Amino acid sequence: MASQGTKRSYEQMETDGERQNATEIRASVGKMIGGIGRFYIQMCTELKLSDYEGRLIQNSLTIERMVLSAFDERRNKYLEEHPSAGKDPKKTGGPIYRRVNGKWMRELILYDKEEIRRIWRQANNGDDATAGLTHMMIWHSNLNDATYQRTRALVRTGMDPRMCSLMQGSTLPRRSGAAGAAVKGVGTMVMELVRMIKRGINDRNFWRGENGRKTRIAYERMCNILKGKFQTAAQKAMMDQVRESRNPGNAEFEDLTFLARSALILRGSVAHKSCLPACVYGPAVASGYDFEREGYSLVGIDPFRLLQNSQVYSLIRPNENPAHKSQLVWMACHSAAFEDLRVLSFIKGTKVLPRGKLSTRGVQIASNENMETMESSTLELRSRYWAIRTRSGGNTNQQRASAGQISIQPTFSVQRNLPFDRTTIMAAFNGNTEGRTSDMRTEIIRMMESARPEDVSFQGRGVFELSDEKAASPIVPSFDMSNEGSYFFGDNAEEYDN
Rank of each mutant, 00 (worst) to 15 (best):
K348T: 03
S478A: 01
A401W: 01
H324V: 04
I365S: 14
K91C: 02
Q327K: 10
I41Y: 15
R422T: 11
G268E: 09
M163G: 04
N498S: 01
N125E: 12
L264Y: 04
N124Q: 13
S170D: 12
R162N: 03
R416Q: 02
W120Y: 09
R355A: 07
E73D: 10
Q12C: 04
F420S: 13
M440P: 00
S467T: 08
A284Y: 04
L166M: 11
E434I: 06
G37S: 10
V476Q: 01
P477G: 01
R305D: 00
M1E: 13
L68D: 11
C164W: 09
Q168D: 01
H140T: 06
E220Q: 13
K273S: 03
E484F: 04
E465Q: 11
I445D: 01
F304I: 07
L256N: 02
D240H: 09
A131F: 05
M426S: 00
R152Y: 01
M13Y: 02
Q231S: 10
R452N: 15
E14T: 04
A123E: 04
W386V: 06
Q149R: 12
S314N: 09
A27L: 13
H324L: 07
L315M: 07
M371R: 04
R261N: 10
R99G: 09
A286L: 06
R8V: 00
I116S: 00
Q311V: 15
A153Y: 03
D255M: 08
I301V: 11
I197Y: 10
L358A: 03
T15P: 00
S165C: 11
R361M: 04
L358P: 12
R221F: 09
M440T: 10
G86D: 12
G228L: 02
R98T: 11
L276M: 15
W120R: 10
F258T: 09
I388L: 14
R213Q: 12
R156M: 11
M481I: 13
L79W: 11
A234G: 15
G94Y: 06
P161H: 09
T442V: 15
G209L: 04
P303V: 13
K229F: 08
D480S: 04
M189S: 08
S287A: 03
N250T: 15
M374T: 14
E73K: 10
N321D: 08
